[in-house]
């Protein structure tokens, strides 16, 4: 291995391979919906997100009623929305996702 290769690999490994931290992520929210809710709800994430406007989703989050509002949008997912994992972990990612694709977001889905 040449010096450049060694230095490059070492630098990228050194900078990159450290433990982990999580932050809210709309893409992750989309994946969570796809994995946990799509079959349960019976419709796509885009349809779910478009059940409310951005303001309505934001208001639900501010009032601590995201789970309740999401349950109204997808009653079959009630168990999931009441779970501790949803409250502790999934809700922020799902919120970013539904806010991104709310009925008045104007975001055009990728194809």
């Amino acid at each position: 291995m040449t010096t450049v290769k060694k230095v490059a690999f070492a630098a990228i490994l050194g900078f990159g391979l450290i433990a982990t931290t999580a932050s809210a992520d709309a893409d992750k929210g989309k994946r969570i919906y796809q994995k946990k809710l799509k079959n349960v709800c019976g419709f796509s994430g885009a349809v779910f997100a478009a059940k409310h406007t951005q303001d309505e989703w934001a208001e639900a989050k501010e009032n601590g009623e995201l789970g309740k509002v999401m349950t109204e949008a997808c009653p079959a997912g009630a168990d999931f929305f009441e779970s501790a994992k949803f409250k502790k972990k999934f809700s922020t990612h799902l919120y970013d996702f539904v806010h991104d694709f709310a009925s008045d977001s104007g975001n055009i889905p990728s194809c």
Partner: peptide, 25 residues
């Protein structure tokens, strides 16, 4: 190939400004 992609500024959960170091051999 090895790479490190790093968001520097994020907004609403999305990467607004990011950097990457990548090595390809």
């Amino acid at each position: 190939e090895a790479y490190w992609t790093q968001p520097i500024i994020k907004k609403d959960g999305k990467s607004l400004f990011s950097m990457q170091i990548r090595y390809t051999y």
